[in-house]
Design a protein around this nucleic acid. Structure first.
Length: 195
DNA sequence: GCCACGATAGTG
DNA sequence: ACTATCGTGGCG
């Protein structure tokens, strides 16, 4: 009688400052359904992208065709193609009209399968079958087939570091906007704080 | 219309 | 350290 599957996080969860959403996404469960198959994985690594003023964010050029969705209402999925061969997935944050997104970089499978299969943003999307057709998905409804839920567990400690792959972004590259579960096998790149 | 360049990952 | 592979957006 208890819901075996936790409910999707509500829109209000995403309608907050991006850094708060990023931190709070750690430990949450990513639920992906394709047909009758459902996969679940715990989010262990994310990055915050703060909008127009953030030189590392796709929103830095304003609402271009690709990034316009970042300026829209929170709780929707932003997917983009990177290096012509991988996809990356983000949840939109902040209020409608204000750009912001959290890049989900890695998750730990909850079915006991290979803990490195979803390690890194490209592998995460590949492993969950997320592509451009999923851009714009509403993450707050079950019927989307892709959502984030709270199963009651929480992360004990959160580490932070500069974001990965944004060295071109001047002083924004140095800001500690990457959040992860320290020492976790499913985290990509450095698993402890640098600096 | 061009074209340099990525919020990456796998191999050497 | 090198590169596969292609949409995006700056430039003009």
């Amino acid at each position: 009688m208890s819901a075996r599957v936790p409910a999707p996080l509500p829109r209000a969860f995403y309608a907050r400052p991006t850094v708060a959403v990023a931190r709070d996404l750690l430990g949450k469960v990513l639920v992906r359904r394709v047909g009758r198959r459902e996969r679940r994985a715990r989010i262990v690594e994310v990055e915050a992208y703060l909008g127009e003023r953030d030189a590392a964010s796709h929103a830095r050029r304003g609402p271009t065709p690709r990034a316009a969705i970042m300026f829209g209402p929170p709780g929707f999925l932003y997917v983009y193609l990177i290096y012509g061969m991988y996809h990356c997935m983000n949840s939109i944050t902040e209020t409608d009209g204000v750009a912001g997104a959290v890049l989900i970089r890695a998750a730990a499978p909850l079915d006991g399968s290979d803990p490195t299969a979803l390690r890194g943003p490209g592998k995460l999307c590949r492993g969950l079958g997320v592509t451009m057709v999923d851009k714009g998905t509403d993450l707050t409804i079950r019927s989307s087939g892709l959502y984030v839920a709270d199963d009651g567990r929480s992360v004990v400690r959160i580490a932070r570091s500069p974001r990965i792959g944004v060295d071109y972004a001047g002083h924004w590259a140095a800001r500690h906007l990457r959040f992860f579960v320290p020492q976790h096998i499913s985290v990509s790149g450095p698993r402890r704080n640098l600096k």
